[in-house]
């Protein structure tokens, strides 16, 4: 599916097939979770990032079903570039009504960036003003886990991490996604 077509499909699904909830409710809930984690782990932001990623991973494992059911694309992506477009233009669109930009591909087509112009999770958010959160906390780290979990369920092992965030004072919010390998279907030995 071409990038343009993916964008059209995403828009169509968002308009017609998605049950919607007020965005501020989700923003508030997520913000409360992050704030509580920061408090629980006494501002050990590395640990907070880890918890958010793990939460995302578990969500991703489930979310893929929802994605496949709603997107109704009963076909594998033919390559990782197509996967990237589908993530940005269909995946993010139908869950969060945003379309991050896919960019900065490496020449081997195994690594790209998602640049977020908008991010509903981060609306109204300020990081703690303790001089460390700006350097250590990745507020939206749950996204990395979601991508990792969801793609693992469709035979792709990826690594994802943020490299910049406007909440930290950077100019952009950018996530780096790398394909590690395609996971072979592994059948139980006695089951051939």
């Amino acid at each position: 599916m071409s990038a343009n077509k993916a964008a059209r499909v995403g828009e169509e699904i968002w308009k017609g097939r998605i049950d919607k909830v007020n965005a501020e409710l989700v923003t508030l809930t997520y913000g409360t979770i992050v704030a509580q984690l920061c408090k629980d782990f006494e501002a050990d932001y590395v640990e907070v990032n880890k918890q958010l990623d793990r939460m995302g991973y578990n969500i991703g494992l489930r979310l893929i079903e929802d994605y496949l059911a709603k997107s109704n694309t009963m076909r594998r992506c033919s390559n990782f570039r197509e996967t990237a477009d589908m993530i940005a233009k269909v995946g993010f669109k139908i869950f969060l009504n945003i379309t991050p930009t896919v960019t900065n591909w490496t020449s081997d087509s195994k690594q790209f960036s998602l640049v977020f112009e908008e991010n509903p999770l981060a609306d109204f958010v300020e990081l703690p003003d303790d001089g460390r959160a700006q350097d250590e906390l990745w507020y939206s780290n749950i996204f990395c886990g979601v991508l990792r979990g969801a793609l693992e369920m469709v035979q792709m092992q990826v690594e994802a991490h943020f490299i910049s965030d406007v909440l930290r004072g950077n100019d952009t919010t950018e996530m780096r996604v790398s394909l590690i390998r395609y996971i072979d279907d592994e059948l139980p030995p006695e089951d051939d």
């Binding site: 998605i18 909830v21 501020e24 969500i59 009504n97």
Partner: peptide, 28 residues
């Protein structure tokens, strides 16, 4: 000016909140 997200987002958060809280409680 209200903006909207997929209800699934909230569902996923509220589901995953529970096991996460158990995890955090144990780790702490």
């Amino acid at each position: 000016s209200a903006s909207f997200l997929s209800t699934s987002c909230l569902d996923f958060l509220m589901i995953e909140l529970v096991p996460m809280t158990y995890r955090v409680a144990h780790e702490l």
